[in-house]
Design a protein around this nucleic acid. Structure first.
Lengths: 239, 239
DNA sequence: CGTGGCAGAATTGTCGGACAGTCCGATTAT
DNA sequence: ATAATCGGACTGTCCGACAATTCTGCCACG
């Protein structure tokens, strides 16, 4: 059933080296914050050229496992930031031509859950971020881009308040995909702004009062509105 | 309020070049399947050294935007495979020390939704993959690793059958995180195997008969069982 | 006409070395 | 103690080179 021979992989040295370093990191023998040895040093240790080490390092840097603070020369072991990894996911999804419906269904699964947990577990600072994002949306009356950014921040704040990193990281890429579609909706559907503002208000209130079920329900209504808005926008676009 | 000056970013050339090429790809002026110009050619076009181009290329290769078929020399534009990107996400989550509860809550949000849509939209081939994964789980009586792999495949098959790429890609990283926890559960909780097999059977049947609500409900029960199994396993582990 | 084989060109992976710019740490001056 | 200075270390980039492998066009052959 299984093949007798597997394609032999003499993977290039830079990939092998990247894997070796990665193992040290995920195995925690290189701990977060540790400075990596210099490139020349690594080249000596691995017995390869510095150019080869550099290509390996690029790989880990992209993964977010290595990084350096602004204006810092030496690389240090870092934990991948949610922003970095989620932007990769959303780009992948964009290249796969996901439809609005697919995006919407995923949001419909994740966001109400996040809202529910947020109501149960939010702390004062998270609540403040939430109200702040809501206020920023209301203030962005004319500026569509600012309004869309505020909506994204609102979702991000809810996810953060949920106290669940997995939910937050799963939800983050959706925001980036939502932005362009939402821009068109806000631009073309007049009632969108007021409906969003109202939903955000209700959700924030529920989270503030720790009413999980209310938070979930209003988030569901909020997301459902997006679908309606998208359909309206499509009609106007085709005119 | 805002700073008068922002830190100027003289991003290294290899990063700028990576961005330029990436823009060509996401902007579709380099289309999927196209062969990339040779490294020397790119170096000439950008007016930099080949080493610099190589570092830029590594970056895009990691993102899955560039790749090459087995035994192929020249790079071609590819669409990022779900496996690649989701493994990145799960590694990020692992490094952030997510708890089982966080993972479980996210699964509880995503998997029932995926099951529901799968029942509504699955085709024959997807149903076959589903039953096959279920059969493979039953067959893996002794082999824990094989059983866990079968469970992962089952979830993957459900997500694929949902016909929603966003759900599928959001759910994939969770599988990789689930595996180690599930291994311990299956090893230590005797009744786990039979309960999983039963749940998989019910879910598969519901998806086969296109009963969305049934599929969702049974998937919820299935996931809930994981939490109970995890708690039992913890008790045994502390003994 | 299709097919296989072959030589040469092209391309990648890796190497060694080099150099300017900048960051860091230690030393010295105020 | 704080500030200025200086040398070393390190990164970003470049140049040139070479072996191994793949690609390509061409030719002979069935």
């Amino acid at each position: 059933m299984t093949d007798l021979f597997v394609p032999l992989d003499d993977r290039p040295a830079y990939r092998q080296i990247a894997n070796l370093i990665e193992q040290r990191i995920v195995g925690r023998s290189l701990r977060t914050g540790d400075a990596l040895p210099s490139e020349s040093d690594l080249a000596r240790q691995f017995g390869v050229n510095r150019s080869t080490v550099r290509e390996a390092i690029r790989e880990l840097e992209v993964h977010g496992l290595l990084g350096r603070g602004r204006g810092e020369k030496r690389l240090r072991v870092t934990r991948p930031e949610p922003r970095r990894v989620s932007s990769g996911v959303s780009r992948a999804l964009a290249l796969h031509d996901v439809t609005f419906l697919e995006l919407w269904e995923a949001m419909m699964a994740l966001e109400p859950a996040a809202a529910e947990y947020a109501a149960a577990r939010r702390n004062a600072a998270q609540l403040r971020d939430l109200t702040r994002a809501g206020a920023r949306f209301k203030r962005a009356a004319a500026d569509t881009d600012a309004a869309v950014a505020a909506v994204v921040d609102f979702f991000t704040a809810v996810a953060a308040a949920s106290g669940n990193q997995v939910l937050a990281l799963s939800q983050a890429p959706l925001n980036l995909l939502l932005a362009p579609a939402l821009t068109r909706i806000v631009d073309r559907v007049p009632q969108a702004r007021s409906r969003i503002a109202e939903a955000q208000g209700k959700i924030t209130a529920a989270i503030k009062l720790r009413k999980s079920e209310q938070a979930r329900i209003w988030m569901e209504k909020h997301i459902r509105d997006f679908k309606r808005g998208h359909e309206l926008e499509l009609l106007k676009g085709e005119r």
